[in-house]
Amino acid sequence: MLNGYLPIFSQFGEDIFASDVVQACIDVIATEISKLRPKHIRTDNNDVQTIVNSSINRLFKFSPNELMTTRDFLEKTIWLLFLNLNVFIYPTYDIVKDSSGRKRKEYTGFYPLNPYQVEFMQDNSGKLFVKFFFRNGSNYTLAYSDVIHLRKKFSVNDVMGGGINGQPDNDALLKVLQINDNLLQGLEKTIKSSMTVRGILKMNTMMKEEGLDEERKKFEEKMKNNESGILPMDMKGEYHDIKIDPKLVDKDTLDFLDSKILKNYGVSLPIISGEFTDDQYQAFYERTLESIVIGLGQSFSKCLFTNRELDFGNEIVFYQKDMMYLSMKNKLEIIKIGGEQGIFTDNEKLKILGYSPIEGGERRTQSLNYINRDIIDEYQVKRGKME
């Protein structure tokens, strides 16, 4: 072209993370998951849950390892999960004895691993092992039961998420991303073409460089001062217009391609932009986040506790601590219902509204309009006698 610009489209490549839309989808999912509060709890036979004073809760409170806060840890875990459709977390621990002389694990850290290759093996007894290969050249073989393993799209491979070889199968998504990238490149080239050379001024005489420069300046001055749209020329100059007719891709086509990418990750445009309603966020949570939250709890519990500990009600639960996405109307409705049932303390009600706690705010009140259904008949008989 006249400006030296070549209208050649670069290849998108095989990395889906080169797409800004894909990155935006994963980022919003990872950001929401990073708000969770993991807790080691124990549920007794009466379904009463208590938070356990354990090394696990100590680590989960602020820093699962020396490099990360809890938020960082959860965010990195989700990014690795979507990058590889598998993520491995190694819990470090010491073996200690309790007062009864029984051995137990005292956990000292949780580390999300980023190997470039993993291999699964079994010994003669059928016990499963996993071998990790890292980019620094090192490799380690660990018992699979000692590693927390989360998977997405767990289908045709027996142990790994993704495709038959345990790798992400992005062929279908790549086709959409490549089309989207081509259209964006075309849009960029259209904008550039509209700002390139618009015409050629042909001089019908042989002139020196100084003369050409003088003629050019005269021509530019005429274009600046012209208001009628008609440019007068003398016999020496001849102007040839270059017809530029760039074609723009319509908005509906671009929106359609973006929506296909968003649907692949279960994320809607209002969630990406942050302009969502309560119902839209609830749909996002149920469609995309809830299965991840459940998977986190089950994977951690399966690895960290023995069968006996699980039988005694030990488990890891990832709680949704904040409800700040709710509208004020819905927050007040939750406080009203929860308050009448005696679910929330006064400080918990203040926290939902975004206020700081107050002294004595651990008080828990309940409406007198509710009664234990087991004593309804007795209550009604007594009340009837009183009347």
Rank of each mutant, 00 (worst) to 15 (best):
A283K: 09
R364T: 14
F276L: 12
P270L: 07
Y265S: 14
G297A: 13
L257S: 11
Q298C: 07
V267R: 06
V317R: 13
V293G: 01
K331G: 05
E290A: 11
Y379Q: 05
S299N: 10
S299M: 03
L326H: 05
I376M: 11
V267E: 09
E362A: 07
Y379T: 11
E359W: 01
E348C: 03
C303Q: 12
L262W: 05
F312R: 15
T288N: 06
L350M: 12
Q320E: 12
D278K: 02
K349A: 04
K351D: 03
F305P: 08
M324N: 13
L350F: 07
Y370A: 10
Y319I: 09
S356A: 13
G274V: 03
D374T: 07
F312A: 14
Q320C: 03
G313W: 10
K382F: 05
S273L: 15
E378D: 08
I375V: 13
S291Q: 14
Y281L: 06
K302E: 15
Q366S: 11
V293T: 09
P270T: 05
I292H: 09
T345F: 10
K260S: 11
F318P: 04
Y319C: 01
R363M: 10
F312N: 15
I294H: 13
M323D: 04
A283Q: 07
L289Y: 03
R363Y: 02
I261P: 06
E333T: 10
P357C: 12
M328Q: 04
L262N: 12
I376R: 11
Q298E: 15
S356E: 14
N347R: 02
D278S: 05
Q320K: 11
F276W: 06
Y325I: 00
N372C: 04
Q366W: 03
K302P: 02
I358R: 07
K260D: 13
G338T: 00
E290M: 04
S301Q: 10
I334P: 00
T345G: 07
Q366H: 02
S273N: 15
K349C: 04
E309G: 10
E290H: 10
F312D: 14
V317D: 08
G297H: 11
L262V: 03
F284V: 03
